[in-house]
């Protein structure tokens, strides 16, 4: 394409230049391929590889806490700190725990909703339900988190609704974080499961029924195994999005910290960018571990 523009400066008409370029290209498949791949590859390398490398390298720097100047000599101090200090272990475990819990809650809520949408509802109702599931995504994330802050506050709606049953608001804390995050990421879990269920042929369920399987048995032995890839796809969303979150924790998490908060305080308050970079490696490692485990199950190939 670029050859095209250089040649276009030469007097002959456009058509000829374009034709010549196209004949050039058809004669050279390698050139064609590299031109096609140049843009996406540049993007991929810049955005992912360079960013990750920058993160890794800056994790090896240190910072002078008094003047805030970055010392660019390489040392493993930050990595040593995050692996040996119990604080980071505690916070990492807490974060993984919250992310796992959010994922479990989301999958449990999403399964019946998606099943109803895909297999029970009429075409018209299905469309309405898809819109209903998507609508919360139109509201800002912050608005939803702050809404939960007021819902869960002392004397808020939650307390009012729960008090007749002798229950009380959980208050701000990890429970509130799990509730809020599960709410916010729910659409991302419903949609893949819904899509997965649509691909399960009704004939299979019918056949199981004809052969005498109870609805529960055909659900367990036919539908769920076929759904595993879709569930895993949904879980990747809710798990990874919760893993990196710090805003919800700040708003409804009370005094608790998650990994994202440690990154945030080290950048925003402590001005320790290298340590923040080192901490940011923890969720990356966890996600790589998670995806590897998922790959082992073969779920990614079915996706």
């Amino acid at each position: 394409m670029s050859v095209d523009t250089t040649r276009a400066a030469v007097p002959p008409s456009r058509g000829t230049a374009a034709r010549r370029a196209s004949s050039q290209l058809s004669a050279r498949p390698r050139l064609r391929l590299s031109l096609l791949l140049a843009a996406p590859l540049t993007w991929l390398v810049l955005v992912y590889v360079v960013a990750l490398a920058a993160l890794l390298v800056s994790a090896l720097w240190t910072v002078d806490s008094f003047t805030g100047e970055i010392d660019r000599s390489l040392t493993l101090d930050n990595l040593k700190e995050i692996t040996t200090e119990s604080l980071y272990r505690t916070v990492a475990l807490r974060t993984v725990g919250v992310a796992a819990l959010v994922t479990v809650v989301d999958v449990l809520v999403a399964l019946p909703i998606a099943f109803y949408m895909a297999k029970v509802a009429s075409k018209r109702a299905q469309r309405i339900l898809v819109i209903a599931v998507l609508t919360p995504l139109w509201a800002s994330y912050l608005v939803k988190a702050f809404a939960w802050r007021s819902v869960l506050s002392d004397g808020g709606i939650f307390q009012w609704a729960a008090s007749p049953f002798g229950l009380d608001t959980p208050g701000y804390g990890l429970t509130a974080v799990v509730i809020t995050q599960a709410y916010i990421w729910l659409p991302y879990v419903i949609l893949p499961i819904f899509a997965g269920l649509e691909r399960v042929p009704n004939s299979l369920v019918d056949a199981a029924g004809d052969l005498g399987a109870s609805p529960w048995t055909s659900m367990r032995t036919i539908v769920l195994p076929l759904l595993v890839p879709a569930i895993i796809a949904g879980s990747i969303f809710s798990f990874s999005l919760t893993l990196g979150d710090y805003i919800t924790v700040n708003i409804v998490g009370g005094a608790n910290q998650m990994l994202g908060n440690l990154v945030y305080t080290n950048v925003g308050a402590a001005n320790n960018l290298p340590l923040a970079a080192a901490i940011a490696l923890i969720p990356i490692v966890i996600m790589i571990g998670y995806l590897t485990a998922v790959r082992r199950t073969g779920a990614l190939e079915n996706l």
């Binding site: 806490s65 008094f66 604080l87 505690t90 005094a255 910290q257 440690l262 305080t265 402590a270 320790n272």
Partner: peptide, 15 residues
């Protein structure tokens, strides 16, 4: 204790 140690202690206090 200098301010960097104060900062570190503060994240540990919050846990």
């Amino acid at each position: 204790k200098d301010y960097s140690e104060w900062t570190k202690a503060w994240t540990e206090i919050k846990g």
